[in-house]
């Protein structure tokens, strides 16, 4: 190993073995059984190079204050449970490296516009209800006709909505949106983006039902293209894009979309799963 290589590795390891600094975490606390009002509590947390905000909160929970409640699951930005407002901006706690915030005080509070259950935990019931309202699934009469066939879709047709399939229902967009700030019934960026995602999908023929769900007083027209959703989305969904596209469909292609025949099936059955080979000694399945 050359000297430069060794140098490179030692630089990469810097801040991994010993904490880089101590950061003050100012955490929103609220226990419905004890507290009349929420308050902020400060905790000092040693920060390593790759400590995430979620790591820091769990450090607090394990070492300083076991009563702190925080919701998380995957710790890698795929489950969407750990959304919160970190230093004034909606972020996933597990995908936010503390040092990247460039701040010695980190304020953490629960997402906006959703009821706070306790500490950093918000109640997602209204959010999921709205997601359901837009019928986020393929609608067609023959959906279960042939379980062994695929519906034909070209790469270009897939690209129309591929980025919107990335949504992990983390609610960051819902918290950032200015319309949800005052309109409790507004469907929100996440649900509206999914409405577009399924409507534009060529395998779908549910445009009519979905248009009825979004073309309401609290639907797509309450979007004013502030773009806050797209600015905070951690998965590149770009809800603002999807919602403007949904408006476009409603304005110019409503009838056409409502009458569109869904993509047909492949005439070849899908290659069925190969028989699994189990290691010796395993019971027959």
């Amino acid at each position: 190993m050359s000297e430069t290589e060794r140098m490179a590795i030692s630089t990469t390891l810097e801040g991994v073995e010993k904490p880089v600094k101590t950061v003050m975490f100012r955490v929103f606390r609220f226990n419905p059984e004890k507290d009349e009002k929420p308050y902020y509590k400060d905790y000092e947390v040693p920060i390593y190079r790759f400590t995430t905000v979620l790591d820091a909160l769990l450090y607090i929970k394990y070492n300083l204050d076991p009563t702190l409640s925080v919701r998380y699951s995957c710790r890698m930005g795929v489950c969407g449970s750990c959304g919160m407002i970190i230093n004034g901006k909606e972020r996933l706690a597990c995908k936010t490296i503390v040092l990247s915030l460039n701040s010695n005080i980190v304020t953490v509070r629960p997402l906006n516009n959703l009821p706070v259950v306790r500490d950093l935990i918000t109640d997602f019931t209204p959010f999921f209800d709205k997601h359901k309202q837009v019928k986020p699934y393929i609608i067609r009469d023959d959906v279960e006709a042939h379980y062994d066939r695929e519906f034909i879709q070209s790469m270009d047709e897939l690209m129309e909505f591929m980025m919107i399939t990335n949504c992990i229902k983390c609610g960051l967009c819902y918290s950032a949106c200015p319309t949800t700030a005052t309109d409790e019934l507004f469907l929100g960026p996440q649900a509206l983006a999914q409405a577009y995602r399924y409507t534009i999908d060529t395998r779908d023929s549910g445009a009519k039902e979905r248009f009825e769900a979004v073309d309401t007083n609290h639907g797509v027209w309450r979007c004013h293209f502030a773009g806050a959703c797209s600015a905070v989305c951690p998965k590149g969904v770009d809800p603002a894009f999807a919602i403007q596209q949904l408006k476009k469909l409603l304005l110019y292609r409503r009838k056409k979309m409502e009458k569109r025949a869904p993509a047909h099936e492949s005439n070849k059955p899908r290659e069925l799963l190969k028989k699994v080979e189990y290691p010796e000694g395993w019971p027959e399945q």
Partner: peptide, 23 residues
Amino acid sequence: KTIRNMRGWLAGWFRVVQVNFER
């Protein structure tokens, strides 16, 4: 018991720090 936590028009519509240009 939950906290309603809606931002309201002032902090919601006119939130202008750490936001995108379109906002």
